[in-house]
């Protein structure tokens, strides 16, 4: 993966290798157990007295937590709502980001710089700082307690970062390509859809995945905009599970596993791109 080009010559050869391997092992030992415990906790029989010793595999293994979570918390309904939001918001968001990124790449540098700076500023604003004003705006529009405020961030490309990523990707395409398209009398829309977009397919894949993860995990927006139980998304249903009975951990952990599953799965599919994104020149490829 890493390749030799970027790395220093091995520090004291074999011994360095062994230390690095031990280090990697240590990292695994620290970062993996919490997630294993999440699964193991969710498979514990609800209502049993806590075992005196820590154990990774619960005894007995039980799926009662899952059944209760599905029965009590309306988790299924919430999962459907989450899916609905994701199905609408994710394609819309990727579309907005790709269009905006392309437009920025084709814009005069001065105008593009202005939007880039505004995007960077928007990227900096902590999400909690926008809670109150956004809420009052949606409230004035009569859109609270609907799923609209949960889909609205798609207009921002979910995160301005993705617009900037598209901007960089489209800017990296050779200028001759655009000139050739203009000679062919293609419209900007046509160039975007038929020429530019197919060339940045890996970027689209990664951004789609990340947008899904962010949308699926969004907790803050549903928390303030949605009160109707029938409109709860999965993260919100999880919260109500834990508020309902904070001591019955197998139930809310089961819900947490159900919410984590899709996010981690999608994330796993694209994680290699994060570690390759400095490799676009190909010089670091083994």
């Amino acid at each position: 993966m890493g390749g030799r080009a970027g790395g220093p010559p091995p520090l004291s050869g074999r011994i360095g290798q062994i230390w690095r391997a031990l280090g990697a092992l240590f990292v695994l030992l620290v970062f993996v157990p919490p997630l294993l415990l999440l699964v193991s906790g969710s498979l514990t029989e609800p209502g049993l007295p806590p075992s005196p010793t820590p154990r990774l595999i619960p005894d007995p293994v039980s799926t009662a937590g899952y059944r209760q979570a599905l029965a009590v918390g309306g988790v299924l309904r919430a999962a459907l709502n989450s899916l609905l939001v994701a199905v609408v918001a994710v394609p819309l968001s990727v579309l907005v980001a790709a269009l905006a990124g392309f437009a920025l790449a084709r814009l005069r540098p001065r105008a593009a710089a202005l939007v880039v700076v505004a995007s960077l500023a928007a990227l900096m604003v902590p999400a909690t700082a926008l809670l109150v004003p956004r809420f009052t705006i949606f409230r004035a529009l009569g859109l609270t307690d609907t799923l609209v405020p949960l889909i609205a961030p798609a207009l921002l490309g979910t995160s301005p970062l993705y617009v900037l990523v598209y901007y960089l990707a489209f800017r990296a395409l050779p200028r001759d390509l655009y000139d050739a398209c203009l000679v062919e009398d293609m419209t900007p829309m046509g160039i975007w859809w038929r020429v530019a977009l197919p060339l940045v397919r890996p970027v689209t894949a990664a951004i789609t995945a990340l947008t899904f993860v962010l949308t699926w995990s969004n907790f803050l927006d549903p928390l303030i905009y949605v009160y109707d139980r029938d409109l709860f998304t999965l993260p919100l249903a999880l919260r109500s599970l834990s508020v309902l009975d904070p001591t019955n951990f197998p139930v809310f952990l089961a819900g947490a596993v159900l919410a984590t599953g899709p996010a981690v799965l999608v994330f796993g599919l694209v994680q290699r791109r994060f570690f390759h994104h400095d490799d676009q020149t190909g010089r670091n490829r083994p």
């Binding site: 993966m1 890493g2 390749g3 970027g6 790395g7 290798q17 690095r20 391997a21 280090g23 990697a24 092992l25 990292v27 695994l28 970062f31 993996v32 919490p34 997630l35 415990l37 999440l38 906790g41 993860v213 699926w216 995990s217 907790f219 999965l234 993260p235 999880l238 919260r239 834990s242 809310f252 952990l253 819900g255 947490a256 596993v257 919410a259 984590t260 996010a263 981690v264 994330f267 796993g268 994680q271 994060f274 570690f275 083994p286």
Partner: peptide, 29 residues
């Protein structure tokens, strides 16, 4: 973990995983 070594690849993924877990699920955990 920046270099290729034994276990570096899974370790990289492991270090990134908690970031992928939904905030609320992570909080409940």
């Amino acid at each position: 973990l920046h270099r290729r070594s034994f276990g570096a690849r899974p370790a990289r993924v492991a270090a990134l995983l908690p970031t992928a877990v939904p905030e609320i699920a992570y909080g409940l955990l």
